[in-house]
């Protein structure tokens, strides 16, 4: 067995007096796909935002690809360049065209030549099937197209890990499928992924493991089949009975 690419030990986080994450322990191996589910307010988003330090944790350790997350900003920027993230609200840069959205970080963070970055971007946009929209601006695209562009933008940094923070929650039902398809393709290509989502169909199709969180704690962590077939805790059973 290989070393885990993400290793979280006894991680705790507070917002003021309110403890959002309690004693989180999690190991993710390379090329594994983890789906995180749970009711809203359970700390799922906060957990994955801690992994690339968009949120700071107060106690415990997080090690990403051999680097521990600390105050050191150089270190954080290096880790963020290796960890791609896709947000619920897409968060594309509205003042840049789709192509420029994708090339901005490779050119300025990874110092890639502009030509090479554009070729890479076109390749990634082709993967998510919006290559014909490359010269448009985000405001001219549908939600599903924007989210696929956001995936392509993250992939242009050639990350080792991809984090998805409820990528389909802000989309019309019709557009959810096109985004999920792009994510399934990515999973099949062998990317390490942590996905916060309520799409249980997606979890069944691609996830290796499913984590159920409630009130800032990991309640249950099991292989996908096991998770859906015989959940152990009562809380998980209740949750599954309500959403399936």
């Amino acid at each position: 067995m290989s070393d885990p690419i993400i290793k979280i030990e006894n991680m705790n986080k507070w917002f003021g007096d309110f403890q959002v994450l309690k004693d989180i322990n999690l190991e993710v191996e390379k090329n594994k796909k983890i789906v995180v589910c749970g009711p809203s307010g359970s700390g799922k988003s906060t957990l994955i935002r801690c992994i690339n330090r968009l949120e700071e944790h107060q106690k415990g350790t997080i090690v990403v690809d051999g680097n521990e997350l600390t105050e050191n900003t150089k270190n954080i920027e290096a880790i963020r360049a290796e960890v791609g993230m896709v947000f619920q609200q897409f968060n594309l840069f509205p003042h840049l065209s789709i192509l420029d959205n994708c090339t901005l970080a490779p050119v300025w963070v990874k110092k890639m030549p502009k030509k090479a970055a554009e070729e890479l971007a076109m390749k990634q946009l082709e993967q998510v099937q919006i290559v014909d929209q490359a010269s448009k601006f985000p405001g001219q695209l549908s939600g599903g197209q924007q989210q696929r562009c956001a995936i392509a933008r993250a992939l242009c940094m050639e990350p080792k890990i991809m984090l998805f923070d409820e990528p389909t929650s802000a989309l019309d039902p019709e557009m959810i499928k096109e985004v999920l398809d792009a994510m399934v393709n990515l999973a099949k290509a062998g990317m390490t992924m942590i996905v916060v989502t309520h799409e249980m169909g997606f979890a069944k199709e691609v996830a290796d493991e499913v984590i159920f969180m409630d009130e800032g704690m990991i309640v249950e962590k099991a292989e996908t089949k096991e998770f859906f077939a015989n959940p152990k805790s009562d809380r998980t059973k209740l949750f599954l009975s309500q959403i399936l």
Binding site: L54, A78, M85, A105
Partner: peptide, 15 residues
Amino acid sequence: LPRGQYDAAKSLGMG
């Protein structure tokens, strides 16, 4: 500007 713009820029490794 929404906070998401800062998040997105940071998540791409920008200082």
